[in-house]
Design a protein around this nucleic acid. Sequence first.
RNA 1: GAUCUCGUAGCUCAGUCGGUAGAGCAUUACACUUUUAAUGUAAGGGUCCUGGGUUCGAAUCCCAGCGGGAUCACCA
Length: 573
Amino acid sequence: MQLSEQEINRRKSLEELSRLGIDPYPAELFDINTSAREIQQHYPGKAFPAVSLAGRIMTRRIMGNASFAELQDETGRIQIYVRRDDLCPGEDKTFYNVVFKKLLDIGDIIGITGHVFTTQTGETSIHVSSLKVLSKSLRPLPIVKETTDEQGNVHLHDAFTDPEQRYRMRYLDLVVNPHVKDTFIKRTKLVNSMREYLNAKGYLEVETPILQPLYGGAAARPFKTHHNTLDMTLYLRIANELYLKRLIVGGFQGVYEFSKDFRNEGMSRFHNPEFTQVELYVAYKDYYWMMDLVEAMIEKVALDLHGTTEVKVGDQLINFQRPWKRFTMFEAIQHFTGIDIAQMTEAQLRDTCRQLHVPADETMGKGKLIDQIFGETCEPHLIQPTFIMDYPVEMSPLAKKHRSVPGLVERFEAICNRKEICNSFSELNDPLDQRQRLEEQLELGKRGDEEAMTLDEDFLRALEYGMPPTAGLGIGIDRLSMIMTNSPSIQDVLFFPQMKPEKGGGVHIEKELEALGVRAELIPLVQKLGIQSVAQLKELKPTKLFNDLAGMRKKLKLEIANPTLEEIEAWMK
RNA sequence: GAUCUCGUAGCUCAGUCGGUAGAGCAUUACACUUUUAAUGUAAGGGUCCUGGGUUCGAAUCCCAGCGGGAUCACCA
């Protein structure tokens, strides 16, 4: 492995610590009796004569025989004041002069004891009486500094902002970018808030299979895997709808599940291959009832997270206060375009698309055309939470037919900040109608629609035994978290968003090169040339590699013998 | 998949007309007993993403590729 100068320094410090009899990774626990936040909030109202806390060193200001450093724990930062003669009351000043000043670095984790006081500059600080190394950090931490100008604005310096680095190394992002932690804490609060709400209503939180023999409940391409013992194909679920409905058939009155679902589709600012939904099914209810529940629950979430129903998202202020605006899809289209499409035939809808400059093609049926017009002309205007009701039947094979309007289903979505945040129906519980709709989906599948639903005979069997009228709901937790935390990308609300694999970096390359007969002293040179695999090496022309290696040796001023061309040709075989 | 854009020190970024590669922080050394982006002095650190082309000469201009980001398309 190629170590940077700073990494080498830190490894040397590590050895030096061991030599001085200090275990850089001690096994025993370190007792903590407070936190940075607790001290910051309660001092000086409350005295802290004997604190013990632990955290990571984030800044250091060393001045001779006294030093300041900032310690960061889970709750925030606090300054510590370290004096030589406190740490080393006797003759031997090694622990301060060598261990603290030289062998510790930014990023190291230490535990301290001491008392809280206020410095001359007014900063609440801990006067350290003892210090213990808890974990030595071997890599330099990207240091973010902040200053506050006269207007009180905070400026960041050397911010760790590269999105790729932040997502790949979320642990670092969390250490150096404090607001990131807040986002994820809010996300968890959001889930807890919903869970409280649903539990208070007496609904049962359940778990259903992630590995499913048939994928259903949504229209999406699945991830496929294989079970060895059963020798069968299994799919990662794209939704859990069909399993939760089976539980309603089984007699539960309300069931819900926070579920990771998986869809093998494009990735974007709004799409990650695995994402979280909460799905809820309640017997003897319909979609109007569910609208009331959604309003109430999301309003509570906003209040729990922000203490108000108003949430700032980008430059919009979104208000989740009940009641939300309600439109049928036709009303929304009429509202935003002035055109009433309720009675239109397919041909008329196609004309309307042309008139409104909405892209449409010949494969689109009536339902798809309506959805297209809505998506193009209405969705971009829907900032405040709005319910859109009554969708074309073609697009909703699991929703019950509308009680009064033919061709529609009893379905609604809540749109907020131009995006769908939930989807809900009066669930289809007529087993014959359901079979027919799924068979239509099968037809679509045969015609090449990769997202068409499959036909799950066991699910239909369950419906045939009888499912009560039921209202169902799915809420995208990631999308809602984006809104509730003012995050522009789904990657900001996922700890570890899916990324392309990192390039190269195989640890075994050194051994493989050795096996080829490359001299040990030349291996770092080969790596320095950016060669990360044997295959890559073998693609090069021997003469080029020869030149490059010689050049690199010269550049690095290494006192080693250049490889000969014959030597290199031998590697290539 | 398309378009735009970026790639320079560990980090954040300058780099003029094509002419010896820069700053701050970080690192190393020394000084310093209340600092807070500590300070002062000194030092080390670079495949200027890769490959090709133009040129006496390329971080800089041209072409291709790789990687990242953004926008769009796809995503009931």
